[in-house]
């Protein structure tokens, strides 16, 4: 997409948007030059993930996947092949004989999507095809747990694949069980809060973006579905690199989080604004940029809209709340969020 329709010659990143015009932090499309607007605002959008799929109301993953894939399509002149791990995204998009994908798409297994994508990239390399690009995508369980070995191998070999993890903090497709990306204290079907015990333990879990950075791959970013311009920008930026890239998108899951479907965007924004979901970018293992929190909110404002954290807000569990506050504090320091 070019800037040819634009009224000005100012590059998108440098356009000044007057937020008071919308009264929110949303960067309204109307305020940007046409060429800088979201890919979803154009008639040329790829509709990679088309309508008619069977995601739940308010599914953050469906939203994130649609924006991410269409942005990647715009960045590559519609030359994307996608591999998908088993999980919600796979199930709700391809109940045989229907498919919601209008791009070449393959699903193999739960734990091997990174390797399948590596295989596709190896095939393109053998054929000398440098224009077609590969995206692997999966949920947090398929990424941080069962698919972790293959993902680390893909990072290690620096295969030319963009891996997108849609992180909703659990195995939602199988009925909300804990993954290693489940936030501490969260209630899941396998981490029920009992007595003084929190839901998921405070001493467990892993943050994959940091592990991806430790592999010193060309590009790592985190994104959130409340800021879709930022998500699109990061995906498009990822496509400017060759080699292994990793983007983790925070996607609320109304079913698993016990939240109202209408609050998906609000919750994803609040996760960022309270410090629990740091948004940043890193290149070759080094942090290059992070999104500053503009108005910091207390973590409890974020937690109280989710049934999975209800126990944390009980008077007897202030120690759990304090521990979560500390995680937010640590994130703010580690990723320079204020």
């Amino acid at each position: 997409m070019s800037n040819q329709d634009s009224n000005t010659d100012i590059p998108c990143e440098q356009q000044t948007v007057k937020f008071y015009q919308t009264g929110t932090f949303t960067v309204g499309n109307r305020l940007l030059d046409e060429g800088c607007r979201t890919v979803q605002a154009t008639a040329e959008r790829a509709n990679s993930l088309d309508s008619g799929h069977r995601a739940c109301q308010g599914c953050g993953q469906a939203l994130g996947a649609r924006y991410a894939l269409d942005a990647a399509m715009r960045a590559t002149d519609n030359k994307i092949i996608a591999a998908n791990a088993t999980g919600c995204l796979e199930v709700f998009t391809t109940p045989y004989p229907e498919t919601a994908w209008s791009i070449p798409w393959v699903h193999s297994l739960f734990g091997n999507v990174a390797a399948v994508a590596s295989g596709i990239a190896a095939s393109l390399k053998a054929k000398g095809d440098t224009t077609t690009r590969v995206i692997a995508q999966g949920g947090d369980g398929g990424t941080t747990d069962i698919g972790f070995g293959c993902l680390s191998g893909m990072f290690d070999r620096n295969d030319d694949v963009l891996y997108i993890c849609y992180d909703n903090g659990g195995y939602m497709n199988t009925g909300v069980q804990r993954s290693s990306a489940t936030p501490p204290a969260a209630r899941t079907a396998t981490t029920m809060p009992v007595g003084d015990n929190p839901g998921s333990s405070f001493t467990t879990g892993k943050f994959l973006p940091a592990i991806a950075m430790a592999h010193e791959i060309p590009y790592v970013a985190t994104a959130s579905v409340h800021d879709l311009h930022d998500l699109e920008r990061k995906v498009e930026k990822a496509m400017t690199f060759r080699g292994a890239r990793y983007i983790q998108i925070n996607v609320p899951c109304p079913l698993g989080w016990g939240s109202q479907p209408a609050l998906t965007i609000k919750l994803s924004r609040m996760g960022v604004e309270c410090g629990l979901v740091p948004l940043f970018e890193a290149e070759n293992g080094k942090l290059t940029d992070s999104t500053k929190i503009r108005y910091r909110i207390p973590v409890e404002d974020y937690l109280k809209l989710q049934r999975r954290f209800a126990h944390v807000l009980k008077p007897q569990n202030t120690h759990q709340l304090d521990a979560i506050r500390k995680i937010a504090e640590d994130n703010i320091k580690r990723y320079n969020l204020v």
């Binding site: 591999a83 193999s108 390797a115 295989g119 596709i120 990239a121 095939s123 393109l124």
Partner: peptide, 14 residues
Amino acid sequence: FASMSLCIGASAAG
């Protein structure tokens, strides 16, 4: 496991 998975991706890509 990765070896056969790469085979799957590469073969599916032709």
